[in-house]
Structure formats: C-alpha cells, structure tokens
Design a protein around this nucleic acid. Structure first.
Length: 912
DNA sequence: ACCGCCGGGTGCC
DNA sequence: ACCGCCGGGTGCC
C-alpha cells in the first residue's frame, strides 16, 4: 500500500519501499515519548486480551525517536518528470534491482513521480540502514530547485533507541556528519512538556471533533444546490436530502479537481502539500456522507443510485414513462424478508435514458461527464452496497419502500451459501447487496482468490461501491478493510454517522478507500496530516479540515437548512437547582472542607500539589460525595501512617475510592478518562498503556509525569474495581440527605402533574444510585437501573423495558453517568436530573443527548442539583471556563500552562 | 553544469 | 612530456 507507482525505468521492479511494514506511524507525538500503544508484543497481546478486541490498539509499532539528519544530494533530475517545490517532502525508495547500483535509492515526490536518485556514496549508506531496518529515512527538499541536474535534500533518520548507535556508527564510518540536537523538533527534557503536550493533543482531539461537526454548517447552502430525485423514487425527499443528492451527484460527475488543486505554470499545484505534478491528478469520485443517524442516508443513496447513472442520467424509470421491461423474477437467495416481485431483471439500460431534470445548480453537461469518464469501464453499471448483517434487511425494506413499484430495479442479495457467484450475473445487476463478512471471507481466502479463482466481488467492475456504516472499516489491519480497498469501482461512497470515533487515525482508512491522493499512501498521511496534527500544528489541522471538507457532507440533527432546522427537535432547557444543606450536614461538610483545605493549602504553599495529587483528588472526591450523601464516603481511613508501606496502602485505598465511585478521572498522559487504571508508587493514576509507553521510551530514566518521581514498570499496581460489598450496609441504616430530598420532591411534583413523563436520574457515584433506590421504592416509583457493571445483554433488556410504552413500564431510570457509552437511545425520558456535576461538561451533554435526540416528542428539561456554597459550585464555574481553556491551550506555546491550570483548578475548587 | 571529470591535443618564453 | 595546461565533450543510479 505504500509503494508508489514507479515512473523511472526500474520503477516497477523489485522495489523495496522505505515504509517498512507498519513502521510509519506517528513515531512520536511529542517530546520523544510516543503515546501510542506498545511495540512490545507482550503488552499488546495483554491489553488486547483484556479488552477483548484489538480495535482500539494502535497496531503500528512506534518507530521511536529522531536520531538526527544530514544533508545530501539528489541527482539525475533531468531524467525524470517528478517536480518538487521548496520545503516539500520526498520519499526514499530502495531499488535493489537497479542494474547500475544495487544500493540505489530512488527519490519520489508526494505523488509518487520519480524525482531522481540519491548520490551514489550516500545511497550506499542509506541502503545499508534501510535494508537492515535500522532506521526510517525521510527526505525534505530545503530549497527551491534552482538547477535542473541536482538538488539538496535533508534526510532525517528515525528509529528505535536501541538502533541509534548502529545508525550513528554507519553514518560516521562513511564520513558523513549526522546533525543532531534541536532541529526544530521538540526534545523531551522536561516532563512538563510531556503533560502540556498531551494536554494539547487532547484539546486538539476536542477541537477536531468540534471542527468536524461544524465544518459544513456555514458552507453548505452556498455551495450545494438541491436536486430532485428521479420519479422512480416515490418518497419525496426532504430539503436536506435533496441537498445531499445534489452534492453526491456533483461528487460523482464533476470533473473539476478539489479546490486544493491549482493550475500553476502548466503544473497541477496542490495547496495542501505545496507540491506540483505534471499529470492531472486522479480525482475522487464519491465521498463521505456523514449525516447523523436518522437524516436519511439510505434514502438519499437510493435516490443517487436511481438518479445518477452514466453521464448524470437516471438509471431506470417507471414503466409508465416508457422503457421495455424484461421481467424475470429473481428471488434474493436466503432472504429472510419477502421475496419481492420488485426484484426483477432490468430492461436494457440504453433504452431508459432520460435527462435528469435538475432543480439545482448541479447540471452536468454531457461534455464534462464524458471527459470525466474517459478511462472508465463503460460497461460498469452495478452498485455494490456493503453493510453489516444487521442492516441488510433494512436496505431491502427501504429499497422496497422508496422505489416505485413499477420500476424494475434489479437488486440481488449476495448472501448465503447458495449465492450466485457468476460475475456476469453480478455485473448485470443494478444493485448488489452484501455484508462485510461475505466480502472479507471471499477475499481472505488467499488474498482475493477463492477456489483457485478470484473473489467474484473483486472481479466485477462496479459502477459504484457504497460502504454502509463505513466506520466499520476504520482499522486498516482488518481483513474487511483490506478487502474493501481492493474492490474495482469507479465511484466510492462511505455512509457513516460517526466519522471520527477515537482519533484521526480512523480517518485514514476512509481517505484511503476514497483514494484521495496522495493521502491514500500512508507515508504522506502520516507526514502531512497525522504527525503535524498530533504535534499540535495548526496548519496540520487546517490541512486536515480542508481535506475532510472536500469529500464529506455532514449534517447533525441541529444543522440548519435555509435558517430552518434540518429536523425539528423539541426544546431543551437546563435549570440549576440549588440545594441547601441542613445545619447538621453543613457542619459536617465544613469540618471535612477545613481539613481538606488545610492539607491542600499546605501542598500549594510547598508547590507539591502534583506530588500529592492522589491525596488531593481523594479530598475533592470526598467533598463531592458529601454533597450528595454523607454515607457515600464509606469507611474513613486512618489519618496517621507510620511506615511508608502503610502510607502507600492508604493512598491506594484512597485512589480505589476515587476510581471506584465511577468518577471521571483523567489520565495525565492521554487526558482521557482512565482506562485500565494503574497506580504508580508515587500514587498517581494513569492508563496502563499510557504510562507503560512513557516508561518504555524513557527506560531507566522514566519519571512520573505528574511528580517526576522515579517509576518502574514492575512497580505499577493495578486495582481491580471491586464490586459494591457495602451495599447492604449502606441500606440498613439508611438516612436521607438534602440532595435526596430535593430530587424526591421534584419527582413527586412531576408525577402529580403528569405521570406519563419519564426521567433519567444521573450520578457519577453508583453508590448514590443505590442510596436513591430506597426512597424511590418507598414512594412507589417503578424504576430501572443502568450502570457500567451490567452486561451488554442486561443493558439491552433494561433499555428496552424503559423505552417500552407498555402499561406498568418504569418511569425512572437510574443511570450512572458514563454507562452505556454513546448511541443508546433513551428518548422515552424527557426529564434529566443530574445529581452531581462532572469535571467534563461534555460528558454531561452526551448523557443528555441520549434522550434529547430523534424520536423525542416532548421538550426536554434538565435539572442540575448543585449544593450551595460547596465544591460543586466551584466545579460548575470551572466547567464554564473549561471550554475557553481548551481554546487557549490550543494556541498556547507555554508548556507549563497545563500544570499551572491544574493547580489553579484545585485552588479554585478549595477557594484557596 | 557559471561545476567536476574525462581524455585528446598540445608543449619555452 | 612516464608531465602540466588548455579547452571541448559530457553528465544519475
């Protein structure tokens, strides 16, 4: 996948491409400490086993650090067509078969055109390093190319620390000089940088997601017209669906290059990569339709298939409009749904040509259309739709529902053991539906060859391939991803509601599928997009946005068309209900607070807040818990610890308390919620993979990112999140609290006003949910509970029960803040009670979105309970500032800022 | 290449 | 002169 099409005379023979398989990943995110997961197979296997799937893992081994760079020259420019501009990156490709020199290293530009060769003596060095996998070599051309014979190139060497010596030795022994030291990239002298950088990374992820969501908000209307579907589609399209159809037709038909291409001096100049090509770049025909769920991606796609056949003409039309019909019934094999008489053999294509009447601006002239398709297989006519098994029947239903009954659309369900594998048969269909499993099964039997012949799906020349739930292919290592890349088609579409799931790495696979040049080649994606963005480079992000923008249409349920919402969602309002503590509670709270303040102010004065972070967190959690219910605190620990071992034990107990409550603590490395938590001997909590990576990259010198204490992999302590055992204890001597009372009175009032309104009661503390069960039962509320400890199956049951409108179904759901993840639908509820504020306001929003979504019929009212004069009030203030902070951190150059803000946050919380 | 290198022509000052 | 010097031909790996 990384080989460029060779242009030089030996370009195609025996290339040993520099991208040693899988080593082209973000070798370091910042400061030399790559935060990607292990290159250590044991760790990788372990974490994989723990998580059940390897999906979240970064499979690409980390290639380590920058050893240094040296200046060399590229020769033989005049023999090749590849052009390079000032500052542009080039790739180095080994040519072991070169008849003049087996050490030959070819230089290619971003578009894979050969530029020249590395000068002989230098090539001998590079060949040695590259062939032995000692380092990865990247080239940048530092100056404009003044003469036509040779040019300078700066080569940088990246590799594993253990190979540094060997590389340096190789270089010096051949009397080249390796420049080391700060070459504009960052060194990791300071752990502060580490934290700050990861903070920036985390902020970037947030910004990225926001940017992604907002990308099309403003641009849509002036750029996209509307287009009616052909008459064969019997369901009228909504305005935003007409826009999508228009956009999709433009994407398929338009010959114009994306806007980041300019014609400059007879060359095609790419404004993203600052590179030029002589040959007209291959254009993407298709894109990513990333509308939110429920906006009608399926219908729009069906409309596209029917409306935009060759040359912008419709595929077929209702019988009443003419056209001969050849009705040979083909039942979908193995179809669980009805064998529908609509699925018949088509009438001959050429006879159903009618110019599509375009309502919008997207008329395609025959000339444009013809020229754009000059190299296409004119016989290709079938659209292949690939989807997860679970939505196969949905496609059949929707085709049935949206296509006029008198249109003889020829749909074949390629599924089941009896499926017809005849490629001529498949090619002659209008639509072939299949699943990712079928596709990858056919493909993976010896790489696209099954039973000695090619996989039928990979043999057919498709007009169009549509990937439904396209985010499924985001892991490029998966068989189904590889299978999908190998399909032979003119147009490519990805339908997805969740285009970015974890990070931008997910996007690469989508870009690669679309063949968005040159980023379908991993090296360029990494060098131009991924590394810059993960290092916090704004230009990188802008490039990414531009890239995404040119191939994606995304509307959310809150997007607007012509000033009107796409879909109208009921109103949503937030009110904060202040809770007054009773006299007794106030006294107890103040006692705890004073004690905590004393401790923390001492840490602040000493500048040791981060060293004692565990302690600080524990104090804060206790105060937060106290605001909900005094019994949440659980057992109090002894306050004096005699030996270091006891101290350690005490800290572990405290951290167990912090994490065991389900509160949302961040890992200081990745700044996401802690996954697979481990505690260091200095009592700081990280995700195991994150801290393991830090330790691995810093080896013996590894220090805790928070307190800079020595850390060792062998000393990391895991704590299993133990089950609630004190539950019974909790319930036996049950007492109420001000917050419990506040909730109950709201719920009772609500029930007396309208007993059909359902509510979500949300807390970060699962123990609090347990406490709440008592008064709910007492008052005769029917409720269900959903928390993180429940099995997937049980969750589904609970959700179904809650969503059901059967008489006697529950009015209330007790929900732990982070249970269930995104995507669960609780639209039966229209009231949300947030019992305690979260550190991260986005988590609260996400939770509310579970009921404020498509399908919600009522206005949604959110009540946040905040104890007056407590940490909670301060948390709310910090929540408000947090969004600003993200913006600031995004642009900040000061690495210390993150630490400062952390301490400031704690000081603000404790009013110090 | 406004170079380096090669090899033929040439040869006091 | 088995040299130096000159100037034309030539040029990636």
């Amino acid at each position: 996948m990384c080989a460029h099409p060779g242009v030089g005379p030996w370009g195609n023979t025996g290339l040993l491409v520099n991208c040693v398989s899988g080593t082209m990943q973000s070798r370091r995110w910042f400061g030399g400490a790559g935060f990607s997961f292990a290159d250590d197979p044991v760790t990788e296997t372990l974490s994989q086993a723990i998580r059940g799937t390897g999906e979240e893992l970064d499979r690409e081994p980390d290639t380590g650090v920058l050893f240094g760079s040296l200046r060399g020259s590229v020769v033989g420019l005049r023999y090749y067509t590849g052009v390079v501009n000032k500052g542009e990156m080039v790739s180095l490709v080994r040519q072991p078969q070169n008849p003049y020199d087996r050490n030959a290293v070819m230089v290619a530009n971003v578009y894979g055109s050969q530029v020249g060769h590395i000068k002989r003596e230098l090539a001998a060095l590079l060949a040695n390093i590259m062939d032995n996998n000692l380092a990865r070599v990247e080239g940048v051309v530092p100056f404009g190319v003044k003469n036509q014979f040779t040019m300078s190139v700066v080569l940088s060497f990246w590799g594993k620390e253990e190979n540094r010596d060997a590389v340096v030795r190789q270089i010096t022994s051949r009397s080249f000089k390796l420049q080391t030291g700060p070459t504009g990239t960052h060194t990791h002298a300071d752990t502060g940088t580490l934290i700050a950088s990861s903070w920036v990374i985390s902020c970037l992820t947030v910004c990225l997601k926001n940017a992604f969501d907002n990308l099309f908000e403003n641009l849509m209307e002036d750029k996209i017209g509307e287009r009616e579907a052909v008459e064969a589609v019997c369901t009228p399209l909504l305005p935003h669906q007409k826009q999508a159809l228009s956009w999709m037709c433009v994407c398929e038909n338009n010959v114009a290059l994306p806007h980041f291409w300019e014609v400059k001096g007879g060359l095609f100049y790419n404004t993203l990569t600052h590179s030029s090509v002589r040959e007209r770049p291959q254009r993407v025909r298709g894109g990513i339709l990333a509308d939110d769920m429920g906006l009608g991606k399926t219908l729009t796609t069906i409309a596209l298939i029917l409306s935009n056949f060759h040359h912008g003409k419709p595929l077929c039309e209702p019988v009443s409009l003419g056209g001969r019909v050849n009705s040979i019934l083909i039942s979908p094999v193995n179809s669980k749904s009805k064998p529908n008489s609509n699925y018949t053999h088509p009438h001959p294509f050429d006879e159903c040509i009618i110019w599509c009447v375009s309502q919008g601006k997207s008329v395609v002239s025959p000339v444009e259309a013809a020229s754009s398709q000059s190299t296409d297989d004119p016989a290709a006519r079938a659209t292949l739709i690939i989807c997860p098994l679970s939505v196969l029947s949905n496609w059949l239903d929707q085709l049935d529902q949206h296509v006029r009954a008198d249109v003889k659309l020829n749909v074949y369900l390629y599924y089941g053991s009896e499926r017809n594998r005849d490629t001529h048969f498949l090619s002659s269909q209008h639509v072939v539906l299949t699943t990712y499993n079928v596709l990858s099964a056919e493909y993976s039997v010896s790489g696209g060859w099954v039973c000695g012949s090619a996989s039928p799906l990979h043999t057919v020349s498709w007009l169009r391939v549509v990937l439904d739930e396209g985010h499924i292919i985001r892991n490029p290592n998966a068989q189904q991803s590889k299978a999908v890349l190998k399909l032979n088609t003119q147009r490519r579409w990805i339908l997805t509601g969740t285009p970015i799931q974890n990070n931008l790495r997910d996007l690469w696979m989508l870009v690669a599928f679309l063949r968005l040049k040159p980023f379908d080649v991993r090296e360029w994606w990494n060098r131009v997009i991924q590394r810059p963005v993960t290092q916090g480079d704004k230009t990188g992000l802008q490039n990414l946005q531009a890239l995404v923008k040119c191939v994606t249409l995304r509307r959310t349920k809150t997007s607007r068309v012509c000033g009107r919402p796409l879909v109208s969602l009921p109103e949503r309002s937030v009110r904060i209900e202040e809770v007054e503590l009773t006299q007794k509670e106030r006294e107890e709270y103040e006692l705890a607070r004073t004690e905590g303040r004393t401790t923390i102010s001492r840490y602040v004065a000493e500048g040791t807040v981060l060293k004692n972070y565990a302690d600080v967190l524990a104090i804060l959690v206790r105060l937060r818990q106290f605001c909900c219910h005094p019994d949440l605190l659980g057992k109090t620990t002894t306050h004096t610890a005699a030996t270091p071992a006891e101290l350690r034990e005490r800290l572990i107990v405290k951290l167990r308390l912090v994490l065991g409550t389900g509160s949302d603590e961040e890992c200081a490395v990745c700044l996401n919620s802690v996954r697979l938590p481990v505690i260091t001997h200095c009592a700081h909590v990280y995700c195991r993979p994150c801290i393991a990576q830090v330790i691995r990259s810093e080896q013996e010198q590894a220090r805790c990112p928070l307190c800079r204490g020595q850390i060792k992999a062998s000393e990391l302590v895991e704590f299993p999140l133990e089950e609630e055992e004190e539950g019974s204890n909790l319930l036996e001597n049950w007492r109420s609290s001000s917050k419990v009372e506040a909730l109950m009175s709201s719920l009772l009032r609500l029930r007396s006003e309208d007993d059909s309104i359902r509510s979500l009661v949300v807390s970060q503390f699962t123990r609090f949910l347990t406490i709440l069960e008592i008064p709910l039962r007492e008052e005769g509320f029917k409720f269900v509970r959903l928390d993180g400890t429940m099995s997937q199956k049980r969750r589904a049951q609970v959700i179904q029960e809650f969503q059901s409108d059967a008489p006697g179904s529950p009015l209330i759901m007790l929900l732990s803040l982070k249970a269930g993840g995104v995507g669960i639908n609780l639209s039966a509820a229209s009231r949300v009670f947030l019992m305690d504020p979260a550190w991260n306001p986005a988590v609260e929003d996400q939770c509310v979105d579970r009921c404020h979504r498509l399908g919600q019929k009522r206005d949604v009212v959110i009540t946040k309970f905040i104890v007056k004069g407590s940490v909670e009030e301060n948390m709310v203030k910090i929540q408000r500032q947090k969004q600003d902070l993200v913006e600031k951190a995004f642009g900040t150059k000061n690495p210390g800022e993150r630490n400062t803000s952390r301490v400031d946050e704690i000081r603000a919380l404790m009013e110090l």
